[in-house]
Design a protein around this nucleic acid. Sequence first.
RNA 1: GCCGGCAUAGCUCAGUGGCCAGAGCGGCUGUUUUGUAAACAGCGGGUCGUGGGUUCGACUCCCUCUGCCGGCUCCA
Length: 616
Amino acid sequence: MADQNDQLHAMRHSLAHITATAIQHLWPETKFGVGPVVENGFYYDVDLGETKLSEDDFTKIETEMQKIIASDLPFERFEKPIDEAIAWAQEAKQPYKEELLNDLKRAGTTVANDLNADELGTIADGDAQVENVSFYKDGDFTDLCRGPHVVSTGKVGAFKLQRVSGAYWRGKIENAQMQRIYGLAFASPKELRVHLDMLEEAKKRDHRKLGQELDLFVFSDMVGSGLPMFTPRGTVLRDELAAFSNELRQRYDFQKVWTPHITKKDLYEASGHWAKFGDELFLVKSQETSDELVMKPMNCPHHTRIYESQPRSYRDLPVRYLETTTDYRDEKTGELGGLNRVRALTQDDSHVFCRHDQIETEINNLLECANELYGTVDMKLRVRLSYRDDTDAYLGSPELWQSAQEQLKNAVIANNLDYFEQTGEAAFYGPKIDFMATDAIGREHQVATVQLDFVQPERFGLEYVGEDGGKQQPVMIHCALLGSIERFLSVYIEHTAGKFPVWVAPEQIRLISVNQEDVTVNFANEVRAKAKKLGLRLEVDNSNESVGKKIRAAELSKVPYTVVIGEKEITSGEVIPRIRKDIAVQSEDRAVRIEEFLKTIANEAKSRVQKTSLHG
RNA sequence: GCCGGCAUAGCUCAGUGGCCAGAGCGGCUGUUUUGUAAACAGCGGGUCGUGGGUUCGACUCCCUCUGCCGGCUCCA
């Protein structure tokens, strides 16, 4: 297994070199960056000067690559002393390679704090003193590279160039922007095919597509970029999910609060947000006083104001606030996308103010909430422990950070969560436990988050009176379970492919009248009225269409239950509900009393079950 | 914000500088009174995203803006 992975890795990495070889053949002046292996394939960063690659060039490049593959040229490894390697880079007019080699000589690694592990892997192991640098040569293309590679260019499996995009040299915005060519690569054409089919399937469940097809949310050019509006159906999703999230924390005595959407910037100067995110805040002007206010980008500073509005005793703690509210962030246009990244985002936000000895319990409670929520929506999440790095992007003393990070890690271990650690992902005021969900095409997004914060209590001078009568500083624990409801929905819609369980489904039951005669339509409307009393969401389709066509429409709307109403139902008082496949425990159709059917569905919705018990 | 791509009817999409821009679905009207994934017929529906330019002539070529898509950067 490990051997297979190593082999696939070598194939992908070799394909990166072959891509570069082909590009060098086609554009001899190309300056090369790095070309690492990534999930499902590889990329290579290139600088073609004035020439801009587009996907139209892929056929040409792929044809050239196929030639190189067909020639089955050996990958030859050789080493040079570091100074000779630098001379080689100068000779070959490869400034990016030269820069990497100079770093390698100076620091013993190309990482130099800013290249990721994959990129590091392309050149050296990154440890110890570097004397010699290894090179790989295939035909007329030579690249400095740690390897390993496959023995020859003919042994690379199946590939397909995927896309081209911009990428800053070494990931730094102030550096030149290169062109990054991504390729997919697998051991066999069949595996490549499987992956391409998977991507096709994923497109069908793209939340933007489903959002339109299922009539969940809309955008308007007149409203603007990153500002989704939710239709009646989409609003049901938002409300049901938010209600669940709130209910979970209200079990742990969180109290709802409400704060305004605009504030003086003084609040964020105090919290530190103004310094860090000042250029991403929307500003609002008063026309009377010309005072400038800001749209709130988050809620913790507001909540500190409520906390400090009265003296607190150690007996009062923890104080727990909960607020589902919309925040506004002036995100860069290029960063917006669907519901995943928006300018008006709704957080199911909460803040605990507690004593140090209460941190563990409070975090455990929140992790329990997160587990229950994600268990109920049937999503398996990876947990990321987000730590600070050693830049100066963070506030607070290193000792406090160290302690906070350890406490979060202990909580994650104690709760048996599947976690990984990552530096540089913390908030500026504290480390985080981030729950990561995966979208239809495999991109990971942060949803739930639990954050430990010693910094804002300090900056806001929060305090409580301790047992000994002295002033103490509380700790803040930030938590959003859904995260941003919009982002959560972007993932959840793709996770469910729009087949929402009954408790969140915008329309739970569709009643279809067999004809348009009064008896039929009236009966359907009576059933609807009874169901509404039970809190169910349902519609009657009495349009002048065939039953088959109306069934089809209900199927396409992904309504969990469809019930045909005709003479049989009217006389027997029983229905045979058509149950969406994914929620049916059995496929057998069985008649049930209408009242019983409605009551069962209402109970299932209330208890948020995934599967129907109708046939159970 | 940066790099690349895209924008034709409500939706999905045809239309490679030359008559008045098309199809399917949806919508509306009529016929039909329908039994578990598409009845039949007819009718509407468009400043070809916006503004400018090139040209005898632009949906088609060039530029601006707006919006969307894929990355990069960022994500309190």
